[in-house]
Design a binder for these strands. Structure first.
Lengths: 233, 233
DNA sequence: CTGTATCCGTGTTGATACTG
DNA sequence: CAGTATCAACACGGATACAG
């Protein structure tokens, strides 16, 4: 009976979209489905496999992730690629246009960071840490500082390279560094955004630091958060 | 039996949020609910009443709009205000912080406008037209041009003021203008973004124009759309 | 007239279990 | 590892009825 492959859903896919030519509405059609934008976030540092995406998205279920990946691929935001034989795995990656959504993410994050309802005590992943560094970096504060800092978390290793007033944050690459910081992303965030002295975090065992502490001490001052909105709104 | 007003939902409001400290996730908590960002869009030109918001949002139902307004107010993005007695009506308006989401909207719109899936033939409102003008305006093309153009649509009257390389688009104000354009937002968009000569639109009766046609002819060239992504992605 | 509340059919989401 | 199947809970949209 499976010969009759009924493809009803193909012909009438009345997905719930906004019926609006406005580019804002179309933008929300693209990224507004639940989890969609966070799936894109997970891919911002490079290609990932299904399971790795899922690991970074606490709470998403497999079927929803499948749907979102299909939708994002259909929209041209991501593509799936099969890695060459040595590792026979499939990965998802942003298309060039998909990568340009980084600007949307950045502006949204800077706006949302000012929200009275933003709760920094919630879970925080390595990918989020990397993106937040890119987002909150203030070149003016860096001056001519040069540094290479490695962040080792349970999930990922991040390398931040500061040179010529620009900051690059990528994942993976190991290599020599001025400082190596090991610990959960939350603890790193506490040092950078929470104003908690690195020494305290080391003392409590939350962070382990090897290398030039002075570089780290200065580095953590380069990421000022935008001001919160006053209670009046 | 209605004496026992059970308020279970109040104490445990397990609204579906992302459990994530990442500012991107929080941003989607704020604007990601269906219709939420478009409700904000409707308020970008100034305060509006419930019914007027709803008119700009074809397809939204009254109960959903009520929920969104509550949610946005609780988030500190909008506030409700009661107009003084002469007009005993309630209006909704963006808070100062809510207005700053205009930047998010702008970047999202510019990114989404490049989407292969963007369909400009869908319904298009006066608010969307106003915002798109703000979004796509290219100051470099304006040079030292000065103009005041009035767009009269069925729903709203918009006034675009170009001076000193800056464009202001507001609603309401009538006043003298170099050109007055009357017709549906779609037709105006066709002239500005679709490259359709204004003369054609006048000939077919889609637009009515009074005043200096030369000003209009130049004005429509100031809003280049970002390039679409090539089919390859 | 301006919202708000309730009922209801339907589609989407999310948790668990399961298959290639 | 990479999804699919199933099912319960919820959100959405439409209609209607109600309150100021």
């Amino acid at each position: 009976m499976k010969l009759e492959k009924i493809t009803e859903q193909e012909k009438a896919g009345p997905k719930r979209r906004y019926d609006d030519a406005c580019a804002v509405a179309h933008g929300m059609d693209l990224i507004g489905d639940r989890w969609a934008f966070l799936v894109m976030r997970e891919l911002m540092l490079g290609p990932k496999r299904f399971s790795d995406i899922r690991e970074g998205l606490a709470g998403i279920s497999a079927n929803v992730l499948t749907q979102r990946l299909e939708g994002l691929e259909e929209s041209g935001i991501i593509r799936r690629r099969r890695l060459p034989p040595p590792v026979s795995a499939q990965v998802y990656e942003l298309t060039p246009w998909g990568q340009e959504s980084a600007m949307v993410m950045r502006v949204l994050a800077r706006w949302a960071a000012r929200s009275p309802g933003h709760d920094p005590s919630l879970p925080f992943s390595a990918v989020s840490l990397a993106l937040s560094l890119r987002t909150m970096f203030e070149p003016a504060r860096a001056g001519d500082m040069t540094a290479r800092i490695v962040f080792e978390t349970e999930q990922e290793t991040l390398v931040a390279t500061l040179a010529a007033g620009a900051l690059k944050v990528v994942r993976g690459e190991t290599g020599e560094a001025d400082v190596t910081v090991a610990g959960p992303p939350r603890a790193v965030a506490a040092a950078i955004y929470g104003g908690v002295p690195a020494a305290d975090l080391i003392a409590t065992g939350e962070l382990k630091v090897a290398g030039d502490m002075a570089v780290l001490s200065r580095f953590v001052t380069l990421f000022p958060l935008p001001d919160k909105v006053e209670s009046g709104g």
